[in-house]
Design a protein around this nucleic acid. Structure first.
Lengths: 212, 212
DNA sequence: TAAACGCTTTGACCCAGGTCAACTTAAATA
DNA sequence: TATTTAAGTTGACCTGGGTCAAAGCGTTTA
């Protein structure tokens, strides 16, 4: 990622709620998040919408568009953010002369695939509470990596967006938050989350059946 | 894909039920399916299993392993099959001198991401019947590309495997098959599927609510 | 040919989570 | 500061699909 940032950099500010790119428009650049956070979502003809990912500092958007050279999803800023444009053709060109850059890029794409498989597992086989626990632990981990607290953070997305990502309705997300709070595993104050008992939250991820 | 096949080829036969690779083992090669079909699945500590993909001739397995250099899922043959080993280091090396090969490879990885997003949409927002319709149409399309009939084919996987992939129980899959047959949209005889009304099947994908 | 096994179908029942609605709180706008 | 609007919580009720059980088939093994 650092290498990427050095290679090509044309910064772009984007305000909360604004589109970074839209489904169906021509693809030319990837975007590296420098500050803030974004969501990506796909929209079906019948209006159904599914959030496919949340992106924070250092993460890369647009990988899906390489195959058809058209963005396959919308990317929208969850807060005022800043991204770095990475012209894809240029990236490919440069990686021809910097093998480690190419290798790094392959790893990043692969990581995206692994992440998606994780979400598929979550959507395919987990109960509501397990999904939310998994989601919170994933966020927590990503905050830690960026030097923030693992156990005290603010959500950038709404209950509805979380629900869409987790394959749940917003009411179910809200109830799952309340349940975890009742059990003293987390504290919820609107978007402000505190994790009181990381271990028990981890247990929640695993097996709902085992009478936690 | 054809280029890939030319570049590196060390064939390997694999019998029905055998593992092509296992979760946790060291990654060195991608695999291109030459004949037959395979499934990939991830296994959780608590025994839960999720099928993450079905692969047929010409498709590429192992992309998930690039990021950690360890296979993140099991790959198992659904029938007697043959794959072509593609040493990844060699692929990267060669693509340095053949830009079009590198570009093609990037497209393939990207396509996998798009495919996964499609599955996420399916798992996150579709009803049982819609999921099955989507699945059948996807298979149909892939058979057509390979020169087989779009409307008459044999499934290689069990109801349980379909269920796992679609986030449903095998009984639900079976019932959804029966329902589509009752409506004369498809014919089901065990693993033999005939699509009688492609258009109505497509409608099923979209909106269950609209009283089809 | 029988026995055993795995896969599939179907029915009866139940519950997690969806739906609908009322209300509360927070944030944006005037 | 009041007013509107968006976001979140909670309750009551309902249903799609999970669960459990029984039976039907097809295929392999003895």
């Amino acid at each position: 990622m650092e290498i990427l940032g050095d290679v090509v950099s044309n910064k772009r500010k984007i305000q909360r709620g604004d589109y970074l790119h839209r489904t169906g428009t021509r693809f030319q650049t990837l975007f590296a998040v420098r500050r803030g956070s974004l969501k990506t979502s796909v929209l079906e003809e019948d209006g159904r919408q599914q959030v496919t990912g949340f992106y924070m500092t250092g993460e890369l958007l647009g990988l899906d568009a390489i195959s058809t050279e058209i963005y396959t999803c919308d990317a929208i800023a969850l807060e005022d953010s800043e991204v770095c444009e990475v012209p894809f053709a240029k990236l490919e060109e440069i990686s021809l002369s910097i093998p480690s850059l190419m290798h790094q890029f392959h790893k990043i794409m692969s990581r995206e695939i692994v992440r998606d498989h994780g979400v598929m597992l979550l959507l395919g086989s987990m109960k509501a509470e397990e999904r939310l626990a998994t989601f919170l632990l994933n966020l927590s981990q990503r905050f830690v990596i960026r030097g923030y607290s693992a156990s005290d953070f603010n959500l950038r997305m709404t209950r509805e967006e979380i629900g869409s990502y987790l394959g749940l309705k917003l009411e179910t997300v809200s109830r799952a938050f309340s349940k975890l709070q009742d059990e003293n595993i987390i504290n919820v104050d609107n978007k402000h989350i505190q994790i009181n008992d990381m271990d028990r939250l981890r247990l929640k991820m695993g097996h709902s059946s085992c009478a936690a």
